[in-house]
């Protein structure tokens, strides 16, 4: 079954901070490597901070654009992993090891076509 693991972190924990200022860099590297070594990683990416986001809506045929993320929350989507594991239990096990679990929150969602 395929799951997406969404990493929600505070703005200062985003992947583009300078490596020397990012105490969590090694943890992310080790986590990604563990997923690869286990053969469960299908894909994933780290995202630029949420202030670089642009949000678009079409309402009544009019485009409404604004700078910033869709929802202003304390933690923002900082990246995601796509994994392939036998079941939700296994996905949760990997999600708990995700550094974002202690930095913010991790959301696990099954894909429609697993």
């Amino acid at each position: 079954m395929k799951f997406v693991i969404l990493n929600y972190v505070k703005p200062r924990n985003f992947a583009d901070v300078q490596p020397e200022n990012d105490p969590d860099g090694p943890a992310w590297g080790a986590y990604t490597k563990a997923l690869l070594d286990a053969g469960v990683m299908v894909g994933g990416a780290a995202l630029r901070p949420s202030h670089t986001a642009t949000t678009i809506r079409l309402s009544e045929g009019r485009r409404d654009l604004h700078d910033g993320p869709y929802a202003e929350t304390k933690e923002q989507l900082g990246g995601f992993y796509l994994i392939d594991v036998p079941d939700l239990d296994a996905a949760l096990e990997w999600a708990a090891r995700n550094p974002a679990a202690s930095l913010g929150a991790v959301e696990v969602r099954p894909l429609v076509q697993g």
């Binding site: 986590y31 490597k33 708990a96 550094p99």
Partner: peptide, 21 residues
């Protein structure tokens, strides 16, 4: 150590292992 860090859940142990490395 890298492998252990990647499999660790809690932040305190992760920091401990990162320091060791």
């Amino acid at each position: 150590y890298g492998k252990a860090i990647g499999l660790t859940e809690d932040a305190a142990s992760r920091r401990f292992l990162t320091d060791r490395r």
